[in-house]
Design a binder for these strands. Structure first.
Length: 305
DNA sequence: AACCTTCCCTGATGGC
DNA sequence: TGCCATCAGGGAAGGT
């Protein structure tokens, strides 16, 4: 599930591989991921150069000469680049393995393009929860798309004052708040659970039940778990791969997500799973008590690590 | 306005 | 072996 660390890993990979390159040819197939007419998109991006790669929350922004080409990977989206010598070259084939760029399309791959240098980039999305936009580069062009997004947790703009302002007057549960991109952009189901564990907060607690110290703990925990995910190249549970096609490694470092019925690394208690906002939610009932922590927390340590 | 629920979509998985 | 139900979840849309 591509969340901020996964999207940022893809962005960095693309930065190294396609920035400055020109799109020589492209193929698109009708697919619900396109939020613009796919043939129109194709006609507009061919001949354009990749000027920059940016990210806002879970959105990847591929800046072309005249367009912002915005991609959201949804649940299973994969944006990968293969070098010109990456696949078996037949006698009648291009060095990249495709006679025609349209040959790179398949049932789950509605978009493929070739750069002037020979690399081929494809967008694959099995479950079609991804989205592709093409927006003209004019002042405020991305406001419609990004205007409602919340704080950017890894940016220098991320500050406690704004965070507290966002939480003010809210009654929603912590897990729901973290999943809502209007509070903090880029957190998804996995990192929400990890952040709540890191902050020692029960996911079903409400925003208004938090003490000042607890809000500060959550404020700090969010970028902490995202940075860790980024350090390990993202979390791969099933579909996620970076732009090089390689999975991430952060799944090995998760503290609670997917660990229900196993022992908490911190205290040994069995990790529980519940559903909040229709999402599987994992937590340690000892480390993340539902009622507010006592003045003198008495954490029992039954196992190391 | 704030908050919650439903729905989209497909492959993997488990029960029988 | 095959068939069917269930599960996973980001975010838009609809409901309260």
């Amino acid at each position: 599930m591509p969340e901020l660390p996964e999207v940022e890993t893809v962005r960095r990979g693309l930065e190294a591989r396609i920035r400055g390159r020109s799109i020589e040819s492209a193929a698109v197939a009708s697919n619900r991921v396109f939020r613009v007419d796919p043939q129109w998109l194709r006609s507009q991006i061919v001949g354009q150069r990749v000027v920059a790669l940016d990210r806002r929350g879970k959105y990847l922004v591929i800046e072309l000469d005249d367009w912002y080409w915005v991609v959201h990977l949804g649940m299973t989206g994969q944006l990968t680049v293969k070098g010109k010598d990456a696949s078996g070259a037949g006698s009648d084939r291009r060095p990249d393995g495709f006679t025609d760029i349209a040959d790179a399309l398949d049932r789950h791959t509605p978009l493929a393009l070739r750069f002037s240098t020979g690399e081929v980039m494809t967008f694959r999305d099995v479950r079609k929860f991804g989205r592709v936009f093409l927006i003209a580069k004019v002042q405020g062009a991305l406001t419609d798309l990004f205007g409602s997004l919340g704080l950017e947790p890894l940016g220098s703009s991320y500050c406690l004052e704004d965070f507290l302002k966002k939480l003010k007057g809210r009654k929603t549960r912590l897990k729901s708040m973290l999943l809502n991109q209007g509070f903090v952009a880029g957190v998804g189901n996995i990192y929400a659970d990890e952040a709540l564990f890191e902050a020692a907060l029960h996911p079903a607690r409400t925003v208004r039940s938090l003490s000042r110290a607890e809000k500060e703990a959550l404020f700090r925990a969010i970028p902490e778990v995202l940075e860790k995910g980024l350090l390990y190249g993202g979390t791969t549970l099933r579909d996620y791969v970076g732009s090089d096609g390689e999975p991430g490694q952060n799944q090995n470092g998760l503290r609670v997500y997917g660990r229900d019925e196993r022992a908490c690394y911190r205290c040994g208690t069995v990790i529980q799973k519940m559903v909040i906002s229709q999402r599987g939610t994992h937590y340690c009932p000892t480390c993340q008590p539902r009622s507010r922590k006592k003045e003198k927390p008495n954490v029992v340590r039954t196992s190391a690590v």
